[in-house]
Design a protein around this nucleic acid. Structure first.
Length: 259
DNA sequence: ATGCCGTGGAAACCACGA
C-alpha cells in the first residue's frame, strides 16, 4: 500500500496539478494539507471522478486538511487535535483505512518567533505528543503524516546557519520533534535514507527549486507495527517543477501488505 | 537578511506562508 502526503497550497488553485499527480503516481491513500478552501468548496466531484473517496476539514482562506483513498473505505475518527476546544484552525484529521490509523496534520508555522504564533506552535506540538502517546499505547498500526513545519536536523536545511532563529528550526522546535519521535516513532525517510540530503519544500522565489535550496519539513512517522512493514519511501521531486505547482513536493511511503 | 512569489478573500490591498 502506498501512502502519500502533499501540502497543496490551495486545493482549488492546485486542482490540475493534484489530479495529474494522483493519476501519475496513483497513491492508495493521499493526505493533503493547506486546502485553503471552506468546507463547501472542496472539489469532491473531481476527486471522486479521479477514483478517490475523500474526507476533509476545510476552513475559509487558510489551513484545511483532507484524506483521500482509492478503492477503499475511509472511516473518520476525528477532525481536530484533542486538548484545546478553543483552537479553531483546521489542522488535523484522522481516519481508519485498511486497518491503519492515519493522522493527517498541518502543524503551525510559528513565525515570527518568539511571539504568540510560536507559542501556539509549541502548544500544538505538546497536544500532538499527548495524542501520539495515546495512539502508541493502543498498540495499533499508525501513521502520523503531513507538514510538520520542522527541519529535524541540519541535514534537512540547505543553509542551516540562516535558519537557527526561524520557528521551523529553533532549538525548541527541533527538541519538540525529537521528543515526539523518541516516544517510539520512526521517521520513514530517514529509515530508508539515513544520510542523504532530501528536501520536500522549495520557496517560490529566487529559483529555490532549480538551486536545490530546500527544506525537509513534510514527514512520515510510523508506529512500530508499520516500521516493520516499510518497504520504500521517497519524494516526488519533479512535481515541484510542474507549472502552477505548490511550493511543497509530495512525499510517499510503500508498506508491505499485512499478513 | 529579505516574502523578491503565490493563494485566497476582500476590495483594487491585505494576511499569511516558511
Amino acid at each position: 500500500m502506498k501512502i502519500a502526503t502533499y501540502n497543496v497550497n490551495g486545493v482549488n488553485g492546485r486542482l490540475p496539478v493534484l489530479l495529474r499527480w494522483l493519476k501519475e503516481t496513483s497513491p492508495d491513500v493521499a493526505c493533503l494539507q493547506e486546502l485553503k478552501a471552506p468546507q463547501e468548496n472542496f472539489p469532491e466531484q473531481a476527486i471522486l471522478d479521479a477514483g478517490y473517496k475523500a474526507i476533509w476539514h476545510g476552513q475559509k482562506s487558510w489551513n484545511g486538511v483532507a484524506i483521500l483513498a482509492k478503492d477503499r473505505e475511509i472511516t473518520e475518527v476525528c477532525r481536530a487535535l484533542p486538548g484545546d476546544p478553543e483552537d479553531e484552525h483546521s489542522r488535523y484529521i484522522e481516519a481508519l483505512v485498511d486497518g491503519i490509523t492515519i493522522g493527517c496534520l498541518y502543524l503551525p508555522n510559528g513565525n515570527p518567533a518568539p511571539g504568540p504564533k510560536f507559542d501556539y506552535k509549541l502548544g500544538w506540538f505538546e497536544r500532538l505528543k499527548i495524542h501520539a502517546a495515546g495512539l502508541l499505547a493502543a498498540d495499533k498500526p499508525v501513521v502520523l503524516t503531513g507538514d510538520y513545519n520542522v527541519m529535524p536536523t541540519e541535514l534537512d536545511v540547505y543553509k542551516p546557519e540562516r535558519w537557527v532563529n526561524d520557528a521551523l528550526f529553533r532549538p525548541e522546535t527541533r527538541e519538540a520533534f525529537k521528543t515526539l519521535v523518541q516516544q517510539g516513532w520512526t521517521d520513514a525517510i530517514r529509515k530508508i535514507y539515513p544520510t542523504e540530503v532530501i528536501y520536500t519544500f522549495f520557496d517560490y522565489f529566487r529559483d529555490a527549486y532549480g538551486r536545490n535550496a530546500g527544506l525537509r519539513i513534510d514527514h512520515f512517522l510510523l508506529s512500530p507495527h508499520l516500521e516493520k512493514r516499510l518497504l520504500a519511501a521517497g519524494v516526488n521531486r519533479d512535481v515541484r517543477g510542474w507549472e502552477k505547482t505548490s511550493d511543497h513536493a509530495p512525499v510517499w511511503i510503500e508498506l508491505k501488505d499485512d499478513e
